[in-house]
Amino acid sequence: MKLLEHFKQARAKPREPFRRSTFTVVSVLVREYHLEEGFVERLRNFTLGEEWLAAFEPPEKRPLVAPLFSLVPPEEYRLVQEIVAAAESPYLRFAHCPEELLLAGPLFRLNPDLDPHILAGVHFRTLVARELVSRKITALQRLAAGSNSSVPGEFWESLLDRLNALTHREER
């Protein structure tokens, strides 16, 4: 009887869609964009500024055509492993371009609870921008509350609304 219930439960559970492993995604990006050792250095030294936020336009996330699994030569394998180690982010498997490889680490540190659907459908730069703008507004609100003045952040709020709309479109 227990076995039967187990089967029923297993069948009732919605199946998760197949997602390619981090190794597969990164190795495909390495081959497609001809990434080399220099990219690992760039990844290690990557810092996320905020100056780009003012003129931010959400980029489109292009679909990644990748095989179900990937096998690579030893040199490429070492490079892929170095990129995975340097990025230190579980979001790497949702990256579709080298820029997203760079942003996967900072995005994970900003918000480690993002939904896979959002990560698969929204460009990481958009998500990073949303997190940064959201923090900026919170900081401005705190500042305004301390000085008892109105919040001078209409631009940021409208940007956040746009970014939230983009993100929630994927959530739906």
């Binding site: 190794f23 699994f69 990937s70 690579v72 030569p73 030893p74 394998y77």
Partner: peptide, 10 residues
């Protein structure tokens, strides 16, 4: 043939 790698093979 030259061995190709993935984490499981490594």
């Amino acid at each position: 043939l030259p061995l190709m790698f993935d984490p499981a093979i490594a």
